[in-house]
Simulated assay, not measured.
Amino acid sequence: MNIEAPHDQTARVSALAQDIRSLLSKLKRRLRDQAHVGDLTASQTSVLLRLEKDGPATASSLARAEGIRPQSMAPVIAALESAGFVSGAPDPADGRQTLLSLTEACRQWVEEGRAARHDWLVRTLQARLTPEEQDEVAKAIGLLRKLVDD
Results as ranks from 00 to 15, higher is better:
148 V>L: 01
56 P>L: 01
36 H>K: 08
63 A>F: 02
109 W>M: 09
33 D>P: 03
48 L>C: 05
136 E>H: 00
74 A>Q: 11
94 D>F: 00
97 Q>S: 15
17 A>H: 07
15 A>G: 06
34 Q>L: 03
145 R>V: 00
32 R>G: 05
143 L>V: 15
79 A>Y: 00
13 V>P: 07
44 Q>F: 01
20 I>L: 05
105 A>G: 04
119 D>H: 07
121 L>H: 13
72 S>Y: 09
12 R>P: 04
99 L>R: 04
39 D>E: 04
114 R>G: 08
39 D>G: 04
52 E>T: 13
100 L>R: 14
31 L>Q: 13
12 R>Y: 05
84 G>R: 03
3 I>Q: 07
112 E>W: 06
19 D>H: 06
90 P>I: 01
34 Q>G: 14
79 A>S: 09
14 S>N: 12
76 V>M: 04
29 R>N: 06
74 A>Y: 09
94 D>E: 05
126 Q>D: 08
13 V>N: 14
40 L>C: 04
94 D>G: 03
135 D>N: 05
63 A>M: 02
138 A>Y: 13
113 G>N: 02
99 L>V: 01
5 A>N: 11
150 D>A: 07
149 D>K: 14
15 A>D: 10
20 I>C: 05
84 G>N: 04
66 E>F: 10
102 L>V: 02
18 Q>L: 10
124 T>G: 09
90 P>G: 04
85 F>W: 09
127 A>D: 15
114 R>T: 10
66 E>H: 11
132 E>K: 12
33 D>F: 02
68 I>A: 00
115 A>C: 08
105 A>Y: 11
125 L>N: 10
115 A>H: 11
11 A>S: 14
105 A>T: 11
134 Q>W: 01
62 L>W: 03
27 L>E: 13
80 L>G: 11
113 G>S: 06
101 S>T: 07
115 A>E: 12
8 D>I: 01
110 V>E: 11
103 T>C: 09
11 A>P: 07
86 V>K: 08
89 A>Q: 06
144 L>K: 11
120 W>M: 15
53 K>R: 11
53 K>D: 14
119 D>Q: 05
137 V>I: 12
60 S>D: 15
64 R>E: 14
77 I>L: 04
144 L>R: 14
69 R>P: 10
7 H>C: 00
68 I>M: 00
133 E>Y: 02
21 R>F: 07
149 D>L: 03
64 R>Q: 08
2 N>Q: 12
143 L>R: 13
102 L>E: 14
100 L>Y: 14
8 D>P: 01
104 E>K: 02
1 M>E: 01
96 R>K: 06
122 V>K: 15
94 D>K: 03
48 L>G: 11
117 R>T: 15
116 A>Y: 06
142 G>T: 02
